[in-house]
């Protein structure tokens, strides 16, 4: 039961990552690419959560939390660079 749901989840997140990669490569402007990278981070956090459920131990959630932190900081840094031409002024 749970393995069927996990298989569906892995497949859905894999397809979602492929779509994000398409937008990352094609996206007309840099802000589209920032958005695609942000969404990729979100989907990878989902993959880590599902892998944590599949393996049954709780240690992978630290990785998910770290990726959430780093992904947010990266998105804000990219957007700040587009806005100001600099990150830390």
């Amino acid at each position: 039961m749970i393995s069927c749901a996990l298989g569906f989840g892995f497949a859905a997140l894999g397809i979602a990552l492929a779509m994000n990669l398409w937008r990352l490569l094609k996206g007309p402007g840099p802000e589209d690419r920032i958005l695609a990278l942000d969404t990729m981070v979100i989907n990878v956090i989902g993959l880590i959560v599902l892998a944590g459920i599949a393996s049954g131990d709780g240690t992978s959630f630290e990785a998910a939390l770290l990726l959430a932190l780093v992904g947010f900081v990266g998105t804000v840094a990219f957007a700040k660079f587009l806005l100001r031409g600099d990150i830390v002024e």
């Binding site: 749970i2 749901a5 569906f8 989840g9 997140l13 779509m19 937008r23 402007g29 802000e31 989907n43």
Partner: peptide, 28 residues
């Protein structure tokens, strides 16, 4: 197990639909 499976399927579907919207919608 039913509850966890349903929530996992729901969440993965939302992630897939969100990424589909990222591909399909016309402007940023």
């Amino acid at each position: 197990e039913w509850l966890a499976s349903g929530l996992i399927v729901l969440g993965a579907s939302f992630a897939l639909i969100g990424s589909w919207g990222l591909v399909r919608l016309p402007s940023l």
